[in-house]
């Protein structure tokens, strides 16, 4: 079962994820996001963005990469064949745009267990690397997973 010792853990910042135009277009097509600001540079600039803007759930791409540090750690005790995604929340401090270099600090906010069902909540603090190697907050992505026990269905 999920290892309660991981609660409160904070991981080192990830290596930067470079947000590419074609990746944004590809993700937008995959979620049926047809707004021209995802696809057309002139349209994106017309809405006031420096480059193509990401759809509202794009941050999950960076967040899930960061979360894998935790959920794929054998010590964490998370059996992925028993995992169900319970909830997800995005708070955007500013929209993600093509050209962003995003780094993420992963936090394991809680690990709880009740009646053979474990629930883990993670929080990804996603920031953009600025010109002077500073960090500009971009998004906070909170995700909860439920892990069914051996006997639970």
């Amino acid at each position: 079962m999920a290892n309660a010792d991981f609660a409160g853990r904070e991981y080192p910042e990830t290596t930067p994820y470079g947000v590419g135009r074609e990746k944004l277009r590809e993700f937008a097509v995959a979620v049926g996001a047809t707004h021209p600001a995802h696809h057309d540079l002139v349209a994106a600039r017309g809405v006031g963005y420096p480059d193509l803007v990401a759809p509202p759930t794009f941050a999950v791409v960076v967040a899930q990469r960061a979360e894998s540090q935790y959920v794929q750690d054998p010590e964490a005790g998370i059996d992925f064949s028993r995992v169900v995604h319970a909830d997800e929340k995005f708070v955007h401090h500013r929209p993600i745009v093509a050209g962003d270099e995003l780094v993420t600090v992963l936090h394991v906010d809680s690990v709880t267990e009740r009646a053979g069902i474990a629930m883990v909540t993670t929080r990804c603090e996603v920031a953009a690397v600025t010109a002077g190697d500073g960090r500009e907050p971009v998004a906070t992505v909170t995700s909860s997973l439920v892990i069914r026990g051996e006997d639970a269905r």
Binding site: A37, H38, P56, D87, F90
Partner: peptide
């Protein structure tokens, strides 16, 4: 909204 970047937060339960 006319602007996908105007969505400042978004959450759900599955």
């Amino acid at each position: 909204a006319g602007d996908p970047g105007a969505v400042v937060s978004y959450q759900t339960r599955f």
